[in-house]
Design a protein around this nucleic acid. Structure first.
Lengths: 329, 329
DNA sequence: TTCCTCAATCGAAGCGCTTCGACGAAGGTT
DNA sequence: AACCTTCGTCGAAGCGCTTCGATTGAGGAA
């Protein structure tokens, strides 16, 4: 049952290396200078015994848990693959800094934040999918726990926020279509609900998209096949000269393409389409379409890196916008 | 900066309630009988001060971290929304047992397991997407850390495994189609790669599906639109009398429906389709199709519950198959 | 040579909690 | 009345680690 490595303490390592426990600690942390010979002996003992410091003991003594929390939204409307990419990116980056990641769901709310803060189970916090008016933000401020937000709340004063530059993404789409000679363009977005809820997100794409001169329409749209068919049909009817479309609604893309085909549009020839969405989904399902990627992994890495800097007492920019990338295939 | 609740220790609570620290501990854990009056006073002090036990100290003293690890696969081929549902279900259930969840990715491999085990950062482990030959299984055995696997490795001896009863799912699909009067039925599965890798999963659906009498075909299939179109076309050509189709490939469903429509099949009338897939995706995107759900959340809850029992020294069945549910709309 | 500095190491004091053994005060038995 | 239980509570001993002086010896400055 008890395999090797189970129950190996710093005292065991110290004994084997013929030094004091504190010396082992200093070798491992590098906080005091140790002669190379001693360090070698200690490291050898660590390897021989398969020693890993007891996380609880360490956190108790050093007031550093070596764990950060990541609070994911788990509600409708989020595109789940993006979340997974995000989670994956965050865990990977955190491990690079020797940190583990504790998973929380948004439904724990402010109370959850208070709990992890008070129990010192984590050193810092990453909050995803922050809304314009987010009840967690006030608690976060009060707790004074180092944190990084993905998204921008209404009052970002004193908080560290990271997000995709959605305005730039919208602009990039419009530019792409204009360059292809499209005179009348439209943006097919997410459902109304998303617009209503997260001004900071869909709104910014819309702004970027509309920022350019020339006729442009923005049309929210649910992602079920029937609604997509109808919406596209109506859009084409209302804008007879429409020849460029940006789709900011990943699950709907397939249906949009079908609707366009049904309407006799030849995409890539007299009609152009560009997608805003998460990395790989767009690539795998619609290899033919150009797309502006939501670089979920980069976003996660940036967030974690910023948090690490904060934990080390270094300073980080209050606001970081990650550049979107337009990929043309 | 330092909000309320920051730095409140058990001693503070004890002082305020006028008892010894150990008494507070016993009130909180219920491990010794305490008079109702004292308990009340202690609980009041806890509430007043916003006390939360220090996780590190607790884990050091009690040898229980109050955290379980969940190792997610983060590689191609998994359907990501299912993972998220799973993660969500696991976290929610874990919180019900006052546990937190540490997120690990499969690429940490056996070494990752050894690390979390030795550092006592977690009390137990949930491994998702376990393959038939999984390198983590041997390490797991050696570590002797309580764990629950989702999926079945080749040698499940002594391990606790939970999974959907895929055989039953395949059987349910075949039965559904037969009942609708389909004489010649087929199963459109995932890509060849999936079959090659995880015998335990796609294979079992196939077995259940083929178990019934009558003509039946099984056809692996990638999930991009072009391949789906081709595969369906070929399938129909090879089986002219085909009038029932089970699709075990969620992302392909939309394309399948289009291909069938193109081929002049009237689904729901002279042709029947049933989907095997994750809960909500099927529901949202194809509300009209009957489906056998992969109850990711139930699976996660079951896994966590089993793990909790193991941590409490209770016994659990070695192998648990969760019943699929055929939903007809 | 004597004194001082600095690098390398040690020992001890906690960090905040759980848990074990004691102990006084009731209440029950003879 | 003397004894044994049982109940409710306390104090102290650690859990394994980090960290803060203190200590030693060697090298340089005076």
């Amino acid at each position: 049952m008890a395999g090797p490595g189970r129950g190996v303490t710093i005292a065991d390592v110290a004994a084997r290396a013929g030094v004091a426990a504190s010396t082992v600690s200093y070798v491992l942390s590098g906080k005091r200078s140790i002669s190379p010979e001693t360090a070698d002996r200690v490291m050898q003992a660590v390897a021989d015994l398969g020693y890993h410091p007891h996380a609880g003991a360490r956190s108790l003594a050093s007031r550093r848990a070596g764990v950060i929390a990541m609070m994911l939204p788990l509600r409708d409307g989020m595109h789940l693959p993006v979340l997974m990419q995000f989670a994956s990116g965050a865990v990977t980056e955190a491990r690079r800094h020797d940190q583990d990641v504790l998973l929380m769901t948004a439904d724990e709310g402010p109370a959850g934040l208070a709990r992890v803060a008070a129990s010192a189970i984590v050193d810092g916090l990453i909050l995803m999918d922050v809304e314009v008016r987010d009840p967690r933000v006030e608690t976060l401020r009060r707790l004074g726990l180092p944190s990084v937000l993905i998204g921008f709340p209404a009052d970002a004063e004193g908080l560290t926020c990271v997000d995709l530059d959605f305005t730039a993404a919208g602009r990039a789409c419009a530019e792409y279509l204009r360059e292809r000679g499209c005179g009348d363009i439209a943006l097919l977005g997410a459902s109304e609900a998303v617009y209503a809820r997260r001004t900071g997100f869909a709104e910014r794409v819309r702004e970027g998209f509309l920022g350019r001169s020339g006729p442009a329409t923005v049309q929210p749209c649910p992602d079920d096949p029937v609604s997509v068919q109808r919406t596209v049909k109506e859009l084409l009817a209302a804008n007879p000269d429409l020849n460029g479309l940006a789709v900011h609604n990943e699950p709907a893309v397939g249906h949009v393409m079908h609707a366009l085909a049904d309407a006799g549009k030849r995409v890539g020839e007299d009609f152009h389409v560009v997608v805003i969405g998460p990395d790989e989904v767009a690539e795998r399902v619609h290899p033919q379409l150009p797309s502006v990627l939501v670089p979920a992994e980069t976003l996660a890495e940036t967030a974690v890196r910023h948090l690490m800097r904060k934990l080390d007492g270094l300073d980080v920019p209050d606001s970081t916008l990650v550049e979107p990338q337009l990929t043309i295939r």
